[in-house]
Nucleic acid binder design. Structure first.
Lengths: 335, 335
DNA sequence: TTGAAAGCGCTACCAA
DNA sequence: TTGGTAGCGCTTTCAA
């Protein structure tokens, strides 16, 4: 078998081989009805023979669109973001849109990276703590369609979030029903809008709630924080900003010889797979649906011929999942 | 505050405002040393004032490169792929390369999607069961740099994988030490090279190994398969293709009133977070490192001025993690 | 050091 | 139905 060409074929070569103009090639390849079926076939054959694929940059430049959109998130660590991104990609694929991802993971140059990304897409979904409102506003001012995900709203920009405060209240009520009174919150409300919402909901029911800020939100961070909290005068219950932190607390409690939930109640947030096996009481978020909704909304904005519709906001429901880590003999039955 | 322009500024506007030619703008903005510091500043100021960002398609078209690369994977379900992709993105970001993702999730049009993606990037990483060797070969023939990840090699193409067979042998030996003899493998060796490798390793030590094929590799699939296996004459041990399946088996065993590991030993593969909390014996894969290595190798190929170096292959080590699900009183101590 | 102009590969408008 | 051609916005010679 002969070596395939190492140089990509262009529309000119196809035109020449098919014996037509480049305009006709362009039409034939994009199913325009301004070409004879016969011509179309001839062009197709030539294209196939040359392994022709249109240059995406050239196309984008001529069309003035990218046929791609992007999603910016803080990190991909832990199952939460992965699930959201997956839901996003699946929905976007349905629209024939490619997806560019960008994890800012606390980089200082997040803004530059986001702006670079913005130049490659027709629209952008921005999650959580990645870039500030000023960046969002200036991007939106460009006319770039934007959807905010799990993030505080910015005037004029669509926002999709999960319910935090209200479900946190339900969680608080449940904990109080168990008789827990000395409750500590593990997480930094200032660090993310989601956490802020959860904290606010808890605080509404537990006035004396004590918050211990956390810089990271992974298992080791939870473990470390727990070690500090548990020495001395441990609380009745530790409510964690997410499951990973809670799992860390579970581990630390075990190491400290504390039984859960007899000596210490622990709760998380997200309902990761691990939560189920750890018997962790938590709150389930519709992660895939969050991503998919953002993708759909963004697509609508991108394809909306004009009509600057008012910014929309949606809060997707979340669900308290009671397992054993919050206390024995749950007041409302157990699982 | 005045409304920002809704039309993106071009290099022409910047040139006009700065009172120079577009060539000079281009140079000034890209730190060419063919411009006076003074001119550079003037251009910069003009660009800033107009919120100018160069058009990425125009740039790509002129430069003949995308400054982006892509990764194709079967799905993002489960922590495994997410971790790999994260490692990949992190490494790619280090090279200043944007990342496009594509999840084929068994779509029939995977090939078309991959080809579309190929047109947007300077190089491609292809994972597992996404597209066939023919597609890989034809893409590679284009001159597009490609790295294969967790996938059978294709002549002339770089491949990065995790060790499967050898660690599977170690796992088999461990199981035999526990006295297990009637062992069932849950997974389809024909479905993925990784699984095939694991099965081969087990089979080398357990000649009579019985394999039960599985179409999906998630928790419900494991649960369903286990229900079928456990009714009637259950084996001593079930070795699963991955942790999610194993966790499903754990659940099913519980429902069937079987104790693990007393009545049934169970093992997984991947060492997900949940495995730790489920006490699941498994094998740890360096997922981040797999992704990062692929990204690095791809970058090398992309930036390699020429020199068609020979295809490289690397197998990253994996590690047996013994917990309690494989049997009591582990022969070599326990954790 | 700067400018003019020729592409880069395509789409889409205007004529034919 | 087809062809000619003017852009799309940038990079990069080649001259000045």
């Amino acid at each position: 078998m002969a070596m395939k060409a190492l140089t990509k074929a262009t529309i000119y070569e196809v035109a020449q081989l098919a014996g037509v103009s480049i305009a006709t090639v362009s039409r034939a390849l994009r199913d325009s009805d301004l070409v004879t079926a016969q011509t179309r076939e001839r062009v197709r054959a030539a294209a196939r023979q040359l392994h022709f694929t249109p240059s995406r940059p050239a196309r984008s430049l001529a069309e003035g669109r990218h046929a791609a959109n992007g999603i910016v998130f803080p990190d991909l660590v832990g199952p939460y973001y992965a699930e959201v991104v997956l839901g996003y990609e699946a929905a976007a694929a349905g629209f024939g849109s490619s997806v560019l991802i960008l994890a800012t993971r606390g980089r200082g140059d997040a803004e530059a990276a986001v702006r670079e990304l913005a130049g490659r897409v027709d629209g952008l979904t921005v999650m959580g703590q990645t870039v500030g409102d000023d960046v969002i506003r200036s991007l939106a001012a460009t006319g770039l369609p934007i959807v905010l995900l799990a993030r505080d709203p910015v005037p004029g920009v669509d926002t999709v979030r999960a319910r935090n405060a209200r479900t946190a209240e339900a969680l608080a009520a449940h904990l109080l029903d168990h008789g827990h009174r000395r409750i500590t919150f593990l997480g930094d409300p200032a660090g993310s809008p989601d956490v802020a919402g959860r904290y606010a909901g808890l605080k509404a029911r537990i006035p004396g709630l004590h918050a211990v800020p956390l810089t990271d939100f992974d298992l080791p961070a939870g473990e470390r924080a727990a070690h500090a909290i548990l020495r001395g005068d441990p609380p009745d219950a530790v409510v964690c900003a997410n499951d990973e932190v809670a799992l860390g607390v579970l581990l630390a409690a075990g190491q400290a010889g504390l039984r859960v939930p007899e000596d210490l109640a622990v709760t998380g947030w997200d309902d990761l797979l691990a939560a189920r096996f750890a018997g962790l009481t938590t709150v389930r978020q519709p992660m895939r649906e969050l991503g998919a909704t953002a993708a759909r909304w963004l697509n609508r904005r991108i394809t909306a011929d004009h009509q600057p519709t008012a910014a929309r906001r949606r809060i997707l429901p979340t669900q308290l999942v009671v397992r054993r880590s919050c206390g024995l003999h749950p007041p409302e039955g157990h699982r």
